[in-house]
C-alpha cells in the first residue's frame, strides 16, 4: 500500500513539532538521573512552552521590528529544515529544497537573525552573546563542510535522502571515512546546538552565556518560539546524525510497513542518542571560550582525516 508523500511530509512536521520537546524532556530526564537527582516529567518542556505561549510579551522600549520578527523567522526556518531532513521516510516532497550545505545555510540564517536580535536591544550581554555565537559559528563552518565532504564522498551526493539510501544499502559504519565524519559531526553538533563543552544551556550566569545571552530579553510567545526552535534544532541535529550515519529503519520506499516501523526505530535511536549526549555533558565541564578553537579544530581534523582516509583506505 502506498502512502502519499505529502501526507508523510505533514506527519513528519507534526512529529518534529511535538517530538522535539519530548526529546528535550528525555535528555533532561537522563541527565537528572545521571546526576543522582529526581527528574522532572517528560512533558515538562511541553508545559513550559504552553505556559510561555499564554503569557504576555514584555518588550524592551527600544526593541525594533528585527527583535519581534526574529522568533518567527527562527521558528519558520527550523520547521522548514525539519521538512527536509528524512526523519521517518526519504520520500519527501520538500527533500529537494536543500541539500546538506543549503540546510546548514538555513540554520545560518536563523543564527544571523538571532545574533542581530541580541544586538538590537543594545545591552552588553546581547552583543556579547552575538559576538561569541558568530565566532563559534565561523569556526564550526569549515569543520562542518569537511564532514559533509567526507560523507558525500561515500554517497556521491549531498542530498540527504540520497545519503540515507546509499548508507542504508550496505554501506557500513565500519568505513573509516564515515567513522571520522561521525566523530567530527558529534563535536560540531555539540557546538551548533549549544551543548555543554561549548555552551551551557542551563546556566544563569549572563557573563558566560552564548545562546542564552542573545535571547535574554525575550519573553512570552517570543520566548516560547525561540525555546521551541532550540529544542527542534537539537532534535534535528540528532536526527541529521541518525540519517547520515545510522539510517537503518528510515523508510526508503513508501510502503506502509516501513513507515509504521520507522517511528519505532527512531524512538530507539533517539533514546540512545540522548544517553550519549548526557554522558558527554555530565563528564565534561564547559570549556573556556578560546578553547573552542581547539575543540572545533579537532572536529576539522577528524573530518579531514575522514576525507583523507576515504582516498587512502577505501
Amino acid at each position: 500500500m502506498k502512502i502519499h508523500p505529502f501526507l508523510i511530509e505533514m506527519v513528519q512536521i507534526a512529529v518534529l513539532l511535538f517530538a522535539a520537546p519530548l526529546f528535550a524532556g528525555w535528555v533532561k530526564m537522563v541527565k537528572c538521573w545521571s546526576q543522582g537527582r529526581t527528574a522532572p516529567s517528560l512533558f515538562q518542556p511541553v508545559r513550559d512552552i504552553r505556559k510561555l505561549l499564554s503569557k504576555d510579551v514584555v518588550l524592551a522600549e527600544n526593541a525594533s521590528w528585527i527583535f519581534r520578527f526574529t522568533p518567527y523567522l527562527v521558528f519558520g526556518v527550523t520547521v522548514l529544515a525539519g521538512g527536509i531532513i528524512p526523519i521517518i521516510s526519504t520520500d519527501l516532497p520538500l527533500a529537494a529544497t536543500a541539500d546538506v550545505i543549503a540546510l546548514v545555510a538555513l540554520f545560518a540564517i536563523a543564527r544571523f537573525f538571532t545574533a542581530l536580535a541580541g544586538m538590537d536591544i543594545g545591552t552588553a550581554f546581547g552583543g556579547m552573546g552575538s559576538s561569541r555565537e558568530m565566532t563559534i559559528a565561523s569556526l564550526a563552518e569549515p569543520a562542518m563542510l569537511m564532514a559533509i565532504f567526507a560523507v558525500s564522498l561515500a554517497s556521491k551526493s549531498t542530498s540527504l535522502s540520497q545519503m540515507v539510501l546509499v548508507v542504508s544499502q550496505g554501506y557500513s559504519i565500519l568505513q573509516p571515512s564515515l567513522a571520522f565524519a561521525l566523530l567530527a559531526f558529534i563535536l560540531i553538533a555539540l557546538a551548533e546546538t549549544g551543548r555543554v563543552p561549548v555552551d551551557n544551556p542551563a546556566t544563569h550566569l549572563e557573563l558566560t552565556m552564548i545562546h542564552e545571552a542573545m535571547v535574554l530579553e525575550y519573553s512570552g510567545r517570543h520566548l516560547a518560539l525561540i525555546e521551541w526552535a532550540k529544542m527542534m534544532k537539537l532534535f534535528l541535529f540528532v536526527v541529521l546524525g541518525i540519517s547520515a550515519f545510522f539510517p537503518w529503519g528510515i523508510a526508503v520506499n513508501d510502503d506502509l510497513a516501513g513507515i509504521l516501523a520507522a517511528p519505532a526505530y527512531l524512538v530507539m535511536k533517539l533514546g540512545l542518542a540522548a544517553v550519549g549526549l548526557v554522558l558527554i555533558e555530565t563528564g565534561l565541564a564547559k570549556m573556556r571560550i578560546f578553547r573552542v578553537t581547539e575543540f572545533l579544530g579537532s572536529a576539522f581534523l577528524f573530518a579531514t582525516l575522514g576525507m583523507l582516509s576515504f582516498f587512502i583506505l577505501e
Binding site: Q35, G36, L205, T208, L284
Partner: peptide, 16 residues
C-alpha cells in the same frame, strides 16, 4: 565552583 564551569554533577554531589 564546579557548577560555574558547568560541571553540574559535582554541584549536586557536594550539595548533597
Amino acid at each position: 565552583i564546579c557548577n560555574d564551569v558547568a560541571f553540574a554533577f559535582l554541584l549536586y554531589q557536594f550539595s548533597r
